[in-house]
Amino acid sequence: MHEFVTGAARRAMPLLSGLRRMAGRVDGALGCVLLCGVLAAAVLGPLAAPNDPAADEVSRRLQPPSVRYPLGTDELGRCVLSRLLVGTRYSVGTGVAIVAVSLLVGAVLGAVAGYAGGAADRLIMGAVDAMLAFPGLVLAIVIAGVLGPSLFNAMLALAAVHWTAYARIARGSVLSARTEPYVEAARALGAGPVRLLVRHILPNCISPLLVMATFGLGHMVLAASALSFLGLGVQAPTPEWGAMLNRGRDFLLVAPHMMTWPGLAITLTVLGFNLTGDALRDAMDVRQPARL
């Protein structure tokens, strides 16, 4: 029966059924709910914000939560809730961009290494192994700091470190897929290496990459906010969560709400990705370590 299913549908089925199984689990469902909340805040944030996130007014600085300012005001009198909502795009968007770039670069380089073998493989995987044997955040801090503090440089620094994880997975998947009969068949039909990789091999490596990317999103949201917290990422007055937390440091006792809520936002976002990743990994039966 399965011979009659087209190639595309056959590739999509394990992915779809995996996603369905994932959402059916308690942790998967909880993770999805959290991520839907994050997505809603990112999309609707500016509309839902009760106040102008940039409107400062020194007379109402460091106010505790009130009806007008549900989460209080910061050191310049800006609405913390509004900044939190608008900041979702920066905090989560940064993570998404880093993972997207890393996934692309890592998957391509890993696939090339696995498919080509030989010197290219040794060169690429030598670099990957060397970088994986170094605490990534430390290297990212050095790169971001040297390039100068900015959102773009922080993203560049983290992507420069993060792609290695995907390269290793892509290489492994390609190595195991390239000897499959269906690949042999496509090769016998005259498919070139690019077509073989893109059309036939990579689609079958999606599950492990997807699981890794889900954990990677949580990891990168955390790392990007850490860089901003250290002053190496987003600069004032952009309302990013890590940077907001950093400002809250100086007003811990007077205005604890300035650091409580951004921290909670980061935690719930990362928790959402981790829960979803765990469920996805189990549902798709992908064997790999939770996070590096």
């Binding site: 949580g218 917290f229 809250g248 650091m259 921290g263 935690t267 928790l271 829960l275 765990d278």
Partner: peptide
């Protein structure tokens, strides 16, 4: 799971 999701700079504060 919560433990790996909490940013350590927030926990510190």
């Amino acid at each position: 799971l919560l433990g790996v999701s909490v940013p350590n700079f927030w926990l510190a504060l």
